[in-house]
Amino acid sequence: MTDTDLKIHSIETFGTSDGPGIRLVVFTQGCLFRCVYCHNPDSQDLETPEMRDLALAELLKLLENQKPYFGNLGGLTFSGGEPTVQASKLLEYLPKIQAAGFNVALDTCGGVWTSVVNQLYDQVDLVILDVKHIDPVWHQKLTGQSNLTVLKNAAYREQTGKPMWLRYVLVPGWTDQPEFLHQWGKTFQTYKSVQRVEILPYHNLGVYKYHQLGRKYQLEGVEPPTIKQIKIAELIFRQYFKTVVVH
């Protein structure tokens, strides 16, 4: 990747599910995980013909145009793809965005552990960390990578003392084992940084993209969780966390 501007997949000007308030969500290009349920497989590769550059000046202009909608809560969220794949670029953009008065959230899978990513974690206003499975073997099966760096990143953010939201994608048969949900809860229940835990029920709306890309969809036939399945997971998490939100 050339060292020019941030490579992005797309922009959502009215983001309401990736952090508090109304947010400008920048979906960056490239991810190191290959989650079996990924609904944006077209954002996984580091280079695609469809991706585009987003210069800092353009990003600042977009934010300025949107400022009145942010109120006290909203701001900018870097999502992906996996934004920390381009951590240096984010770190370069970040001070200027924050200096202009914008709240910045980082929506991440926690898969990259470097000193640059540490610095990002030091500086962003909110980390939204997706801990996809608490069991390393299942995590590997689900994403193609171990959860070791994810847990290290979680612990790192905790020691910064700054706020964090944790996310969990609920996939029947893959991530809904009660024992692992309890273990997930126990791991993070003492974290003072965790303000909110979000359950994202799995959906299969991205399936058509796999067909477009000519790729096999590994969760073919897996149905979204039922209300009951979601409720069970929610009740388990509620034993450990005060604020649990189901998307």
């Binding site: 309401t16 942010f70 939100v245």
Partner: peptide, 25 residues
């Protein structure tokens, strides 16, 4: 509703922000 936010309190707050922002413009 889901596009306004993932739960009812968020949806309400976001719609208020949306209206505040639009009219501030």
């Amino acid at each position: 509703p889901q596009a306004l936010g993932s739960n009812r309190p968020d949806q309400i707050v976001n719609l208020v922000s949306l209206l505040d922002g639009y009219f501030e413009k």
